[in-house]
Design a protein around this nucleic acid. Sequence first.
DNA 1: ATGAAAGCGCTAACAA
DNA 2: TTGTTAGCGCTTTCAT
Lengths: 331, 331
Amino acid sequence: MAASIKDVAREAGVSIATVSRVLNNVDVVNEDTKKRVQDAIKKLSYRPNIVARSLKTQKTKTIGILVPDISNQFYPEVVRGAEDVANIYDYNIILCNSDSDLDKEKEYIRVLKEKMVDGMLYMSSSLEGEILDLIDELELKTVLVETKISGGKLPSVTIDNKKAAYDATKYLLEKGNKKVAYIGLKKDRTNAVSRRYNGYEKALKDSGIEVDPSLVYFGGLKAADGYNGINVILENSEIDAVFCASDEVAMGAINALRDKGLDCPKDVDVMGFNDNSMAAVFYPKISTVAQPMYDMGSVGMRMLIKIVNNKPLDDDQYVLQYYLVERDSVK
Amino acid sequence: MAASIKDVAREAGVSIATVSRVLNNVDVVNEDTKKRVQDAIKKLSYRPNIVARSLKTQKTKTIGILVPDISNQFYPEVVRGAEDVANIYDYNIILCNSDSDLDKEKEYIRVLKEKMVDGMLYMSSSLEGEILDLIDELELKTVLVETKISGGKLPSVTIDNKKAAYDATKYLLEKGNKKVAYIGLKKDRTNAVSRRYNGYEKALKDSGIEVDPSLVYFGGLKAADGYNGINVILENSEIDAVFCASDEVAMGAINALRDKGLDCPKDVDVMGFNDNSMAAVFYPKISTVAQPMYDMGSVGMRMLIKIVNNKPLDDDQYVLQYYLVERDSVK
DNA sequence: ATGAAAGCGCTAACAA
DNA sequence: TTGTTAGCGCTTTCAT
């Protein structure tokens, strides 16, 4: 068994209260006794039991992070950013993969509450009302990353997906492309990512172009979706460019194009989204809109830690900057 | 405040002991009182406080996972595999990024102990003696993933890196390649990944080929390392093929080749390692040795959970199967 | 400046 | 079958 505060107290010849005092640096402790206690701590390699402390203080110094799937390209960097700042402030993170499944999410949230996490970083492209209710009922301090809710009831860190998509589409248009296709998420889901379609739509309209449904493909966010998307779109139409809702989709699209004898960027311009770690490694290097993934995680965690410690927030709806990265998939 | 066991007891008109009994399904409880308790639980939306339970039982139902960096290609899948099985058995995971930094690792391990995790999954390409000592001193139940230690003192799940590299190199040789280069990790570190070099070396020797130092480049495991590696190697030599210690290195190598006017696989065969999610998306599709990353995580977690619950292990040094994936980067 | 003791929410040994 | 109670390791109030 590891040494407990009692052992230290005995070793130092003081009461456990005194040990606690030097441990937490509170009250005034005589320099001599403090030293005796510190020596005892060192001698016994004592480390406080945080579970016991948590029970008393009602704070666990741990934060839950709920992601759809850590093995998806987007999340590891966000989580890394979050964990780095958590670590700075002596917090740890409990990672949960929900697969965006409502029941799984609810159960995880309940368990996080049972384990008394101090707060939660919630990431999911969709955000059901039931989840909001649960968060509310459990009074679980949470900040949203990637999504936000209209009322602004929960703090969030996001980028302006619609505007980013707008800019990307405009960029494609300004390159002289007429027929610009879109491959992305189904638009019927109320999530952040599907708002990219709205940006695409608006950019076309603002340029006096009607959106042509046969140029739009709704699927997932994987390479296979980009591949399928191109094949479907090319069945009935010709295109000059494609705006893809993720880099992986862009890569899949480029592969499909190539298999059809079409070259990117010579024949078709392709634009991605995210700027994941492979975007600059792929051939051709993917032009994309970069999302500050690491920062989304780190500012999200910073906000959350402030909230947890009742510190005032400068702003509770952070909108981070995205930026267009011009590489080789757009000529 | 959330309801506590006391509230439930009061509501149901029983003692807290009885509530605890129905909660944990121990002893025999009268059906009627059991129902009363269950009703009270439902009525109050009661959920046990796991921190309090943990303090008493000395088990937290949480497992620490130490990885170098979750934003590296390899780890997300392993972690996903681990978390999935953890979830099945009602465990949660605390994720820690160590950057393979010894001090950070030591501190994380101590904190995990303070938080009374039931066990730890340790992943790191290198495994210093100090870490082993600390694990030992803290009596922290741990299983090693990706590495193992010679004595077999700690349970592990790995693949045979040397043999896998041997097979890959042989494969390249059998394709008729004479000058086969190697780009991978510095071999001076005692880690699992650098053993791939030993496999490469042995394959050459077994084929009666002397290893030519100018065909070997030691760097990191990123695309940039593959890119640099090719440039350095090509300064003094010509090559027929390259065996790369990761898929990212392979991609970087292929890019460098292309920039030099060399085509893969026409001019040079390139072999990767891992079979990460981009390997089949890259052009050309990367031929590689597939590591069962998800499985490494899931069997690692399975072992750990058995250990934590004092169940016997069938085997404590699992060596999982890798397999060669033939795609397009080798002709 | 220090100690005694209550209590955080639970489990489990013991009693009834 | 059920209740009482000690105690897990700590923090913190109240005395001293």
